[in-house]
């Protein structure tokens, strides 16, 4: 077995197991920590696909910034186990049905897709250079629009946090 295949299996198993533990663990802080491990495993997959930039940014942004803020919130809230009251049975049934239908849709979509076809054998597709080239040539307009979107979100967040303007 080539080393990339071994890495693929290790990363996949880590990602799936940790993702399950995110919802299975009782302690909210443990959930958050398992989610971080999941992010790392996914970033490892990006590396295997030669998407270096995506992998690095995935770690910097998701694991390094967003999850830190999540952890703050969870640690500050100081959730206790006994506060977790049991949900009503109706909620449980509704949740099971919606999650089950999502699983069904995803499974069918993945089964129908031609998964054996690779998008391209270009190994340079995920490097910083090619990503920058396509972002600033082909996709300049969507890029700028999303930048505006982020700016407006930022302004909105500042506005919400201020009592007086």
């Amino acid at each position: 077995m080539p080393i990339s295949e071994i890495l693929f299996w290790v990363l996949s198993i880590t990602a799936v197991v940790c993702a399950m533990l995110v919802i299975a663990s009782k302690n909210a802080v443990h959930s958050a920590l398992f989610l971080i491990v999941t992010f790392f495993a996914v970033a490892g997959h990006y590396f295997l696909l030669n998407a270096h930039f995506l992998a690095a940014v995935h770690i910097i942004v998701y694991a390094g910034a967003i999850m830190v803020l999540f952890l703050y919130a969870v640690m500050m809230l100081n959730l206790r186990k006994d506060e977790e009251s049991g949900k009503k049975p109706l909620f449980k049934i509704a949740a099971a049905i919606s999650a089950g239908s999502l699983l069904l849709v995803l499974t069918v979509a993945l089964k129908r897709s031609e998964s054996n076809q690779m998008l391209g054998t270009d190994t340079q597709i995920g490097t910083v250079e090619s990503l920058g080239q396509s972002l600033f040539n082909e996709f300049l307009l969507p890029f700028e629009i999303s930048a505006l979107l982020f700016l407006s979100a930022m302004v909105g967040a500042v506005l919400l946090s201020k009592k007086q303007i």
Binding site: F53, A56, A63
Partner: peptide, 20 residues
């Protein structure tokens, strides 16, 4: 690695977890 600078920043951003 060709993303050396990003690697350093990634590692630095993970360092926060040690403290937390």
């Amino acid at each position: 690695i060709n993303i050396g600078v990003l690697y350093l920043f990634g590692v630095v951003s993970i360092g926060v977890y040690g403290i937390m």
